[in-house]
Design a protein around this nucleic acid. Sequence first.
DNA 1: GAGTGGTCTAGACCACGTA
DNA 2: ACGTGGTCTAGACCACTCG
Lengths: 255, 255
Amino acid sequence: MAAMGPRHRVISDAIRAEISHGDLPPGAHLPSEAELGERFAVSRTTVRAALMSLANEGLIASESGRGWFVRERQQLVYRPQEEFRPVPASAEMDHFMAARTAEGRQPSQTIEVAIVTPPEPVARRLGLQEGEPAVVRRRVRSLDGEPWNTNDSYFPLSLVDGSEIMTPVDIARGASQVLAELGYYQDRALDEVHIRMPTPDEMRRLALGPGTPVAIHVVTGYTESGQPVRVVVNVLPGDRHVIAWERQRPRPEQG
Amino acid sequence: MAAMGPRHRVISDAIRAEISHGDLPPGAHLPSEAELGERFAVSRTTVRAALMSLANEGLIASESGRGWFVRERQQLVYRPQEEFRPVPASAEMDHFMAARTAEGRQPSQTIEVAIVTPPEPVARRLGLQEGEPAVVRRRVRSLDGEPWNTNDSYFPLSLVDGSEIMTPVDIARGASQVLAELGYYQDRALDEVHIRMPTPDEMRRLALGPGTPVAIHVVTGYTESGQPVRVVVNVLPGDRHVIAWERQRPRPEQG
DNA sequence: GAGTGGTCTAGACCACGTA
DNA sequence: ACGTGGTCTAGACCACTCG
């Protein structure tokens, strides 16, 4: 016999096993809390502790009045390098939009422009003084009407004031191109990916269920002289994205 | 007045605000559940619902018999490209170990070699037949005695049988070098990063608290002819890693 | 209206850490 | 011994969904 531990643990282990063995496939309706209480001879509170635990692992989710369901995850490939190209693939859409359309999905986005005091991590990356303003272009990208990820681009206000970047519409030739025309060509970039649970704000904005972590992909763009000119913050729900890239022929003499 | 919602929500919002404002700094001891129950005039069950919610966001953690504490997160930079270099930085340590030592930390690792039927995603990437065996070199890397991440390298048994790869000790010149000597030079690689909550197994192996998501960094190495020769699965706890890389001078004429 | 999950209570017993 | 969190119970009322 294996060590049993607390009863809610026994229950969640049993259900998790049913899920991973495929007895409860994605989308399946779980037995009701009352029924599970009878099956395992425990109170409803204990059943709920087990279900909550599985929900926080991202395996199941509840719909009020309907029951508990095994989650289905549908992941799209996210290619970091596509998020930083000087020229977008088409005049009307950026790479995200173009790539998703090619996959037969119906992409859409909302764009919102604001002048803000950026959050501290962004201000630090942009080299802004305390309280110095920045322009943020906030986008929520959706697929078939469901929010998919967010993309917030920050620019120092002093660099882009009055330019096309401050208009809340899609910039056909790309924000990088506008920056270049203003004399700030992005020569290199630093990419960072942070992994954490979403804030309540992010959960609302992206309609995330419990147990859904996010990747925060932060790109800081610099000119050749080393001046930071742009910070892009992408929030990628883990159940909807796989980050992927390719590497060629590593050369031993390097590094 | 803002909409209040359920009481456990009000409590978790209040504590979350105290944490983000710095009134409860990292490491701080929260009031006891009983005390919070008095302060908010609710039962202990409701207090616990609020605390559990914060724990699942990764903000706080409990220590049995001691209380609840605000989590401290210490992140190290993880550079994906370092995980796939033909020659390690030194004879005794791989890149992870060398980089961490340079930072003044005390790295250590356990190595375990086994012949297994790999999990389906690994078998698929290696192009193995159903049930075909592979060699796995399992490593747990620790820093100052705490488990930090895991690194499991899978090789088709048919390629590496009898070679140095099957010895459970550090390979001074690197597994890539051994593969090359066997006639399988890794010419290119596909990198993937998946974001999800850890399995119970991973939680044990890495001593993870609740609300700690992981990044799964999977590297599939190919020879010039396109034959997959290695799959590396890195499990990176989100509270301990930032994935970072740099990009140079994107060229418009490309792709 | 019947069934589902969402919230909340009051109380109990246990295991653990600290003094 | 005492205070802490961990587990569990039995029961209640509510909001939501569906037939």
